[in-house]
Design a protein around this nucleic acid. Structure first.
Lengths: 339, 339
DNA sequence: GTGAAAGCGCTAACAA
DNA sequence: TTGTTAGCGCTTTCAC
């Protein structure tokens, strides 16, 4: 890669002049400007952003830490964030933690070392102690997809989403409404499960632990077949008492649950209604179309990154933006004839 | 962020000594070593990788250019590459081109500016002219998911995959086998379509253009509903003559096609068999399970990145690694009773 | 309008 | 064992 020094030599000017031309500063004679531009083109000059970063103390880099990029929902977020960043002249260093706290810690340190101007994170565990020490760093830091009590954050109200699903199922006449998903989230309550419970209460339905099918949380690789396995196990128990409708904590789990129920000769939605959470692109492609809660992914990515920019420019205090979940009703909870 | 200079001052040693300690070089007295370590810890020192990069002329950064990260298949690749890179002490700058050649060009230049040591790319168009000029740059460059005649590359043999699908369908007794997908790929032939045609030939079946449902290529956003729309249009035409089996060029298109067929009261696979390509995680979750071609994603990511490392270390010439596709048979092409 | 020079944080060669 | 120094490529101040 050529440098300003090389261009300067070729063009017979000083390196400072080359810098002025490349950066479009005024006060350079037209003759030299042209000469420099000419040589820059000939040598296919690309400014060294590393040197610029060092000198300017500005990297135009932001760190994006994702818990599990294999999940299409998070992939969509990466998409939205990268797009918005590029539009603002920023690049993204991507770190995937696979829901591993240790990796998350390391990623944060690496990104700091890389002089990112800020970090956008989907935390593995929003209450992990290591996050508290970041607070002191005064490193712009925005949490997305979960509401944080420590940092600025943008997320949908998960509990409310859970309530909405229960209300929908209850409105359809279901009184035995179950839940498929983790009950805890890295030691803390899982908001969707809380929403499920408060939703039952609002519909004057009893909480019945028999209708709960607990799965592991979002461990990658594992998660893939976990909901299927758990539902399957549940159905194999002789004395399992079934609900007539289930709320699965995300779309992937819902799909797996449907598969497990159908493999046991229950029809969805005729015998059992199922709803998910996330409205991934598959929710509408799948047969039956999946009733689910839509999270405004693009908004989360877009708003999250802009909050980060605001913090970088020191214009803003921490703020938690809670977005409204939206219920998308499809065939999986409706009486639906398979042609 | 603290610097070596600050530590040096606190510890009462020279900045060079701090550097020696931080980098674990020998020849520092135990006393000073401890002192420096102590202060580094206290000040939460993180080495400035930008300065290191500039000095060492080594960034430990690689660029990853993806055409469409919303596609779960590509997201899996990002996952595999990031993991392998992290294991080797590298970070990833991610650029998503949305299949836009202009963005691809800009991404390459940005990454060069960022001093990445090499680029791993899923090109929007493997034959685009701008790629030729990269050849001269002697920038380590590896193409993945497609075989390149210009660069080192790692991919599955798409044409062969197409052939395998056709053979499978033909073996099942189908004689009217159709294709759903783009016919061209940015002006060039789509390998899967070529494979489809040669597969027909090998099974002694006539090519019949009536069985072709052409869709747009992989434009993001658009692609989402494109196959559904095209199949739907096709079925609405009074005089459409249907095949009994279709090969869809990727899983997403296959899902959409299934939806369209079912919306027109055709059952899959009883009335029409459908196969996809990619073996995305949904292929097995979906009902019916989708017969598809599996690409060894992790292998592609893993091998691709290691080829790039080899090129960075100047140990290797260009090489094209062609991986074997694998047919995964599921319900969508078999006689399958929906419970 | 232009060039010389300092300095961003670091590594490594050299000297002591 | 330790400190001094040059220099990576760039931006910017200062002097001419």
């Amino acid at each position: 890669m050529s440098t300003m020094e090389e261009i300067a030599e070729k063009a017979g000017v000083s390196q400072a002049t080359v810098s002025r031309v490349i950066n479009g500063h005024s006060g350079v004679s037209e003759r030299k400007r042209k000469l420099v531009m000419e040589w820059a083109r000939k040598l296919d000059y690309q400014p060294n952003r590393t040197a610029q970063s060092l000198k300017n103390n500005k990297s135009n880099l932001i760190g994006l830490i994702i818990s599990d990029i294999s999940n299409p929902y998070f992939a969509e977020i990466v998409h939205a964030v990268e797009k918005e960043a590029a539009k603002n002249g920023y690049n993204i260093i991507l770190c995937n933690t696979e829901n591993n706290i240790q990796k998350e810690k390391e990623s944060i340190n690496t990104l700091r070392s890389r002089q990112v101007e800020g970090i956008l994170i989907v935390p593995s565990d929003k209450s992990a102690p290591h996050l508290k020490s970041i607070k002191k760093l005064n490193l712009p830091f925005v949490v997305i997809t979960q509401i944080s009590d420590l940092f600025a954050s943008v997320a949908v109200d998960h509990a409310k989403g859970g309530e909405m699903v229960v209300k929908h199922l209850s409105d359809l006449g279901h009184t035995k409404i179950g839940y498929i998903g983790p009950l805890k989230y890295a030691g803390y309550t899982e908001d969707k499960f809380e929403g499920y419970k408060s939703g039952l209460k609002k519909s004057n339905l009893e909480f019945n632990s028999e209708y709960i099918i607990e799965t592991d949380g979002g461990m990658p690789e594992l998660s893939s077949q976990n909901a299927y396995k758990k539902v399957n196990q549940f159905l194999n128990q002789a004395n399992s008492s079934l609900a007539t409708a289930y709320f699965a904590y995300n779309d992937l789990a819902a799909f797996e649950a449907i598969k497990a129920f159908e493999d046991h000769n229950y029809k969805v939605p005729e015998d059992i209604a199922i709803a998910g959470f996330d409205n991934t692109s598959l929710a509408q492609i799948n047969r039956p179309g999946l009733t689910t809660i839509s999270q405004p992914i693009k908004t989360i990515g877009h708003v999250g990154l802009n909050m980060l920019f605001d913090k970088i420019n020191k214009n803003k205090d921490d703020e938690n933006i809670i977005l409204e979940p939206q219920l998308i009703v499809r065939e999986s909870t409706l009486k639906y004839r398979r042609s």
